[in-house]
Amino acid sequence: MEYRTEAHTFTAAATYKPMARLGMNANLSYTKGRGNITDLTFESMYPTGDVKLDFDTSSINPNQPYLYDVAYLNEISDYSNLDFTQLDISVGVNYRLSKMVGLGLNYFYTDFEDDDPYVYGEQDVTVQSLMGFVTFSF
């Protein structure tokens, strides 16, 4: 059995202050993550490989089917894959009206794409929000 997880993360940020009163900033973060099980294969304990078709002829009851087979677990790998991307972006601007008063505006964007839902179901989400504020300094 092989279990492998892999992630790439890229980040970038920039600030720009064209004048003393005005400042701008931008941030970006992108993550791509994957995980999967491979080579998880149990050989069936029974001749045909399908417990539903085999009888335990060594049993006192010749019609008794086999109850246990390690091959039951071969579907585990299909329920163990991870594949997601997350993108976060924020952009902000602030402007100082006077020594005491300033204004600001920020925009936030988050997108999470779950391409292979795992134990917790599909977790896709996209959020955008806008934030404005005024500051007083004294």
């Binding site: 492998r4 997880t5 892999e6 992630a7 790439h8 993360t9 890229f10 980040t11 970038a12 940020a13 920039a14």
Partner: peptide, 10 residues
């Protein structure tokens, strides 16, 4: 400006 890249493999 700032930029970065990180890689993880297990």
């Amino acid at each position: 400006f700032m930029t970065g890249y990180n890689y993880f493999n297990d």
